[in-house]
Design a protein around this nucleic acid. Structure first.
Lengths: 155, 155
DNA sequence: ACCTTATTTAGAATAATTCTAAATATTGAC
DNA sequence: GTCAATATTTAGAATTATTCTAAATAAGGT
């Protein structure tokens, strides 16, 4: 099977993480992960499928969904749902938020300073938190064009 | 047409808001808004449809989607997308975050103290922010059951 | 009432995702 | 390495969520 990206450091990590959740390392899972690492533009499952077929022409859509699910439950990939359209997938593991353009629908990573504090959200009794997500909505540079609406800081 | 909830204060507001965006006040839009106000459990469009039919048996699914869209673009309702399943609708206008249960998929409102600071997210040049959303993922009290995983504060 | 325009409606169409059952690949034991 | 047991992949059907379409109806202004 083709090995396009040398994600060597993460490679071991991929296998480890898969095994930790009782799954096997397969060529398809490696390849789908590669595809996500190669272009971190938050592709949809369909886009991942199209890209994945280039290096692995026989991969099927069902497998792409399977692989994405496996990667998500391994914690190597995040699912991004911002509107009624298809779910997007994010392989950026650094601490970051997302920006959703209301006009074109694209998702952008908003990287945080490594020491930036995440908001502390006090939860009612009984809730167990595992992850925090912050999404800013608005218009991306491409779509903002000439008109101005607000400052460049969301609060 | 039936007028089940006396959302009198918001009523004028509904009409105002609709008109401000060039839309008309209709019995269906009022009724769908009523349905959302009556039970703020983040129903899906389908659930809204089912509830709406009780008081307005001839309303159609397409109309429910239309009304929801109208309410969303009026700013009276927020769309909530947390996973690959159907979009949910939230009529809580107070400042709040959302909690998403990874086990049962339900959405919960996490109300904030009125003076709680929202995180300040510095955006790169060119992005225009209009809204900020915070979602905590984990397990809800119902699903958390006996096992314990983390503290009750996400950070 | 009348005209203009927006909205509703049912149903068809599309898009996104999940399911199914058979074929194939992987792992661990020998 | 071969074998059995189990996980994964696959194509395609099925399901679910959402959008579109064109005709009928309702709203607002005159």
């Amino acid at each position: 099977m083709s090995r396009k990206t040398e994600h060597t450091p993460a490679n071991g990590s991929l296998q480890e993480r898969l095994e930790k959740s009782g799954r096997r390392l397969t060529a398809q899972r490696e390849h789908v992960y590669d595809v996500l690492l190669q272009k971190k533009d938050h592709p949809t499952a369909e886009e991942v499928f199209i890209r994945a077929k280039k290096g692995m022409p026989d991969i099927s859509m069902a497998t792409v969904y399977n692989c994405l699910d496996a990667l998500v439950s391994c914690g190597l990939v995040r699912q991004v749902n911002q509107d009624r359209s298809a779910t997007r997938y994010c392989s950026n593991l650094r601490k970051h938020h997302h920006f959703h353009c209301d006009e074109c629908g694209r998702a952008y990573d908003i990287d945080l300073l490594p020491d930036a504090p995440l908001p502390d959200v006090p939860l009612p009794e009984g809730f167990l938190a595992s992850q925090l997500e912050v999404t800013v909505r608005g218009r991306c540079p491409d779509c903002a064009g000439r008109s101005t609406k607000q400052t460049s800081s969301a609060s």
